[in-house]
């Protein structure tokens, strides 16, 4: 299976002094779901914005689906990368209804696509309401469906669960995983919560201080959870390491 994403020696500094990302390298196979986990300031959002083309790297190379989209000599604009990005606060357009939001990116207004998207997220009865009246979970589903409407090769999600309460989070995690697998796209999402990653992702990247400290499949990660070095990484990375370890044991 070929790689959907290849990142080589990627670095980014906003002020020319401190690096938000430093020499990041990783690849990801097509059809996989990858979680990038790290605390605030670890460089997660910068990484996802660089992949989307919303920031410009200082050095390094990004390839999407085998095509180089960013290196030292050229930068592909975001609309040429075939990626979709769902922002942390969902960025639904407040003056457009759910249907208008869903069809916003479509070149031709195709009612059948919009109807099937509404059915996919089970929100047919909300077609003509404005985002202000939706719950957090509903907003998130609309935001993901709006991005999926364009059939992106790679779907990027920026902290998709951070604005949701814990009960809703648990239900939505599985719902999103099933949705993504159903449409068959690849997905990278960032989170500061390891449990989100464990519940959804096929592979995991741990990011700290702008550097990758661990990249493995979720199966490998869970299999080596008792190793001292993984335990140390976990306790460095999260304050709820004990809970995470317990959850992994249960898995």
């Amino acid at each position: 299976m070929k790689n959907i994403l290849d990142i080589q020696s990627l670095s980014k500094s906003y002020d020319g002094k401190k690096f938000a990302l430093s020499d990041v390298n990783f690849s990801m196979k097509t059809g996989r779901i990858c979680a990038i986990v790290g605390e605030s300031g670890s460089g997660k959002s910068t990484l996802i914005r660089l992949i989307a083309g919303l920031e410009r790297p200082n050095s390094g190379k990004i390839s999407i689906n085998g095509k180089t989209v960013s290196d030292d000599t050229k930068i592909c604009s975001p609309d040429k990368r075939e990626v979709g990005l769902v922002f942390q606060d969902f960025a639904l357009f407040p003056h457009l209804t759910v249907v208008e939001n869903l069809s916003f990116g479509l070149k031709k207004k195709d009612e059948s696509i919009v109807k099937s998207l509404l059915a996919l997220i089970k929100m047919q009865e909300y077609a003509n309401v404005y985002p202000a009246t939706l719950s957090g979970g509903q907003e998130q589903r609309v935001a993901i469906a709006r991005t999926l409407a364009l059939k992106p090769e790679l779907l990027l999600l920026d902290e998709p669960f951070s604005n949701l309460d814990s009960n809703l989070k648990t239900a939505l995690r599985q719902e999103i995983r099933l949705l993504i697998k159903k449409v068959g796209t690849s997905m990278v999402f960032i989170t500061h919560d390891l449990i989100d990653a464990i519940d959804i992702a096929d592979e995991i990247i741990l990011l700290k201080g702008g550097k990758i400290i661990q990249h493995s499949t979720m199966t490998d990660f869970v299999a080596h959870i008792q190793d001292e070095d993984v335990k140390k990484i976990l306790s460095d990375l999260t304050t709820n390491a004990e809970r995470v370890l317990q959850m992994m044991k249960n898995l």
Binding site: A52, L54, P78, D79, V83, G84, L85, F87, Q88, D89, A91, F93, P94, H95, F104, G105, R146, T147, L150
Partner: peptide, 25 residues
Amino acid sequence: KYLSESSYLLASSKIKTLFKIELPL
């Protein structure tokens, strides 16, 4: 800025972003 960026990623057009999202808002 997320609304503008989101619109640009979806619509592939900065002009459409201006006239459909930014100016109405």
